[in-house]
Design a protein around this nucleic acid. Sequence first.
DNA 1: TGTAATGGCTCTAGTAACTAGAGGTTCAAG
DNA 2: CTTGAACCTCTAGTTACTAGAGCCATTACA
Lengths: 138, 138
Amino acid sequence: MFTIGQLSRQTGVKVPTIRYYEETGLLPKPGRTAGNQRRYDGAGLERLSFIRHARDLGFSIDAISGLIELQGHPDQSCQAANDIASAQLVDVCAKIKKLKALEKELNRIAKGCDGQGVSENCYVLASLSDHALCEDNH
Amino acid sequence: MFTIGQLSRQTGVKVPTIRYYEETGLLPKPGRTAGNQRRYDGAGLERLSFIRHARDLGFSIDAISGLIELQGHPDQSCQAANDIASAQLVDVCAKIKKLKALEKELNRIAKGCDGQGVSENCYVLASLSDHALCEDNH
DNA sequence: TGTAATGGCTCTAGTAACTAGAGGTTCAAG
DNA sequence: CTTGAACCTCTAGTTACTAGAGCCATTACA
């Protein structure tokens, strides 16, 4: 049996966040001591690790709820779980693409100005003002 | 003179968002008609375009406030603006790196299961449960 | 057994950056 | 001069937490 603090240390999820997950139904309500403190067992630890991992991978709480529900219905769960993971992958790829474009433009902007001298005509500010200077159409 | 709707169409910023920017002080309060409707001029359009562009590049509202303030103090503004842009660049690079790791793992997870057959032992769910299977330590 | 430190409890409110909706007013076109 | 689109303010909701107040439980040590 673990206290909420021990669970927190083992999973890397902060204590208030664990309580928040319980509140939203993502974590089942654990047992309590006579003094009303939460006590978790191995299953609780596993569940929280699963959530932590999925959050790390960028799954939304909603998506995680979906995945957890699937675990209760082994029939068809594989296809559905795959769909959720694939959607997540598409999302991540799109984000990478967008960020790379930003990286390119920021590089261009940051390089244009040496941080010295030209005080009245800062290239950073000019670039941000004038969208037409952009190489990428974002 | 533009109405808030025209400004919205020209910049791609939604009407409630424009009002929100005004509320938070990011946009100056524009003039009003006798009937209390906002009317914007060219300067308002420029300012909003600047904000839109910087938001697109992932700058926080806070950072944008900083940049806007710099525009009022041409002395030293270039160095400071450069610092803000560089910080933004570091941020973007870090995000890209993290997302690439996620992409790799999601690819691995999504490929492991063909969405058919193996219903009781879904690879997606197993992967998410067992952090030890990960190739990357995230 | 007493006490102090640490950790736990609930509840409210705050964060970023908007978005949605209710209920009412103004503007511009025909 | 009427109609319908666009405008107004205000409140509340979103996501995924985080922070703080004020109080209670547990545990280690003397």
